[in-house]
Design a protein around this nucleic acid. Structure first.
Ligand code: MN
Ligand code: MN
Ligand code: ZN
Ligand code: ZN
Lengths: 136, 136
DNA sequence: AAAGTTTATGCAACTGAATTGCAAATTAAT
DNA sequence: ATTAATTTGCAATTCAGTTGCATAAACTTT
């Protein structure tokens, strides 16, 4: 198990104080969070710095982004082994009641056969419904 | 085959001039279009009216919306038989080159088995890649 | 047909997410 | 220590989506 600093350097991200804080917060989360969610975890913070931190993390494949249709992109940590290749992708779940977005890390995105001459690079699959917490 | 007016009334939408125009434009499209795309098909138009027209159409299940991650929601006509139930859902394709979004109407969204106590109501599945046109 | 009622439209204005420019601060390299 | 490269903070912008309200159009009732 690597510490925060190693997790950053192993993804070729320079470990600044800010980035360590952000990574620690992301590591604590049980669900995906948006930029505004992240901002609210700080007492004082600059949204743009957090924005660029998330961008850097995503670029270096430390986190991945999820478009759950809620209007704000959500982010969640990648597994250590993740390279964000098609085989690393998983299904996400958006709860219509609590509005939380979960990584269903164990559920790979099913591959589908596209029409002729269409090639795939990536897939975003979001199931919407009621999560276990909200189902009484 | 119904005319524009009948298509509207059969979905319980009052057929105003505006709505007929919008439906005709939507019917012509080979791909899903955004609100701004729609706005640009008019010489003079009010974005809010178009916005509310699309909302009404979607509510009455004449069209469905697609969240392709491009930043703007896209819209496309439903099939005549569509009730927007899970069994009516299909996969969408977003071309990374031409940025167009296509309904893969013949490809149903594969059903997945969710973790215990999660229930599903709806699924958004967008495959990203290169479309047939762009694959030379 | 006229008057009244409901619904749709147009315009202005606002919100909130995402993004850019730039200067100051921090970090790395020489 | 000086210089160069990178990161951070603040101001400001863009753009999709949305609301409020007044006018216009479409229906209902007399
Ligand atoms: Mn995930
Ligand atoms: Mn479609
Ligand atoms: Zn929930
Ligand atoms: Zn294309």
């Amino acid at each position: 198990m690597q510490n925060t600093d190693d997790k950053l350097t192993s993804r070729n991200i320079k470990p600044t104080a800010m980035r360590e804080l952000v990574l620690d917060i992301l590591t604590e989360q049980k669900m995906a969070i948006s930029l505004s969610d992240l901002e609210q975890k700080f007492h004082k913070s600059d949204k743009v710095t957090l924005y660029r931190t998330l961008k850097t993390f995503e670029e270096k494949k430390l986190i991945h982004s999820i478009n759950d249709g809620s209007g704000a992109v959500k982010y969640a940590l990648c597994k250590e082994s993740c390279q964000c290749h098609p085989e690393d992708l998983h299904v996400h779940f958006f709860c219509l009641k609590c509005q939380h977005t979960f990584c269903l890390s164990d559920i790979p995105i099913p591959s589908i056969s596209l029409p002729v001459n269409f090639s795939m690079e990536n897939t975003n699959m979001v199931v919407k419904g009621i999560c276990a917490n909200c189902n009484d």
